[in-house]
């Protein structure tokens, strides 16, 4: 059995761990609230954008003349996986889940004979791929300097992807992130960002309302020009949303993980305290027996 001193030290150490996890939980909870607010504040723009895209999608015919962001390269050979994760660990299964989903997709693409390239946003999902598929990684965008996600940050990522697309580095791009359902549930999600999928008219509430009054919309300059300008913006908006959802998911996941850790530490302290008390009593009993048997022997 461990000595009393050793037990006491264990208990102290677990207690300080518990303090840390508790503090991390509180910090995550505060950050989660802010991240959720940011995600909600961003909703009007992306909803409007989706409805504009929807009404454009209804009028513009996708053909070889269409912008390449919409029409694609006509090939389906090289796939780019953009994997957004966090810069910090200790967030439960958050990063692992995103990485697992991405890995599944990567393996199915590789099995189908496609070429896969990986672009990482945030370093945490990169580590497992570094070990196994280092040659597929084409880039990593450091997010560690960013405290609150701004649209400009999303734009940097979108520009990077677009530049690589224009340079013909890939044909199809997928974005991986964790959709925020609640503080307890975060869903790793995959969306195709290039070629852009035009939402069908009627998929958004705004568009439904507009459906009721069909009107001839005047375009200035014209549909194609607007679309050409809208597509890169739409891409940035999608990335931005993904980053915001990711930020909220990360904090939610960390909060849950740290809550569990705090509880586990509490259980462990209880168990250790019981062992400590028993050991202490055993020692006292032993001393008493020694004294009594000593006295009896006289």
């Amino acid at each position: 059995m461990a000595s009393l001193k050793a037990l006491k030290m264990r208990i102290t150490s677990v207690k300080s761990t518990q303090k840390i996890t508790k503090a991390m939980k509180m910090v995550a909870a505060a950050k989660l609230r802010r991240a959720q607010e940011a995600a909600e504040a961003a909703r009007p723009y992306s909803e409007r954008m989706a409805s504009v895209m929807a009404s454009l999608g209804a009028t513009v015919q996708v053909g070889p003349e269409s912008p390449r962001l919409l029409a694609g390269t006509g090939k389906d050979q090289v796939h780019l996986l953009v994997i957004a994760s966090s810069e910090r660990g200790l967030a439960g299964g958050f990063n692992t889940n995103i990485a697992r989903l991405a890995r599944k997709k990567m393996e199915s693409l590789l099995a189908a004979g496609k070429t896969v390239k990986l672009l990482f946003v945030g370093k945490k999902a990169r580590a497992p791929f570094m070990r196994t598929h280092k040659e597929l990684i084409i880039g990593y965008l450091d997010q560690s300097h960013i405290k609150n996600v701004a649209f400009a940050d999303a734009k940097v990522i979108a520009d990077e992807v677009t530049t690589r697309y224009e340079a013909g580095e890939f044909d199809v791009a997928h974005l991986f992130f964790a959709r925020f359902r609640s503080a307890l549930v975060q869903e790793p999600t995959e969306i195709q960002i290039i070629p852009a999928a035009l939402p069908a008219l009627g998929t958004t509430d705004v568009a439904v309302a507009k459906d009721a009054v069909p009107a001839a919309v005047e375009y200035e300059p014209d549909e194609e020009a607007i679309l050409a300008e809208l597509l890169p913006r739409n891409l940035a908006v999608q990335v931005f949303r993904a980053l915001l959802e990711n930020a909220a998911s990360e904090q939610g996941s960390r909060m849950t993980a740290m809550d569990n850790a705090t509880r586990n530490a509490g259980d462990m302290i209880n168990k250790l305290t019981i062992t400590y008390n028993r050991t202490r009593q055993a020692a006292i009993t032993k001393e008493l027996i020694e004294i009594i048997s000593g006295a009896e022997a006289l």
Partner: peptide, 9 residues
């Protein structure tokens, strides 16, 4: 009239 930026309304 609505003026919307990506970050907020």
């Amino acid at each position: 009239f609505e003026l919307v930026s990506p970050e907020r309304l």
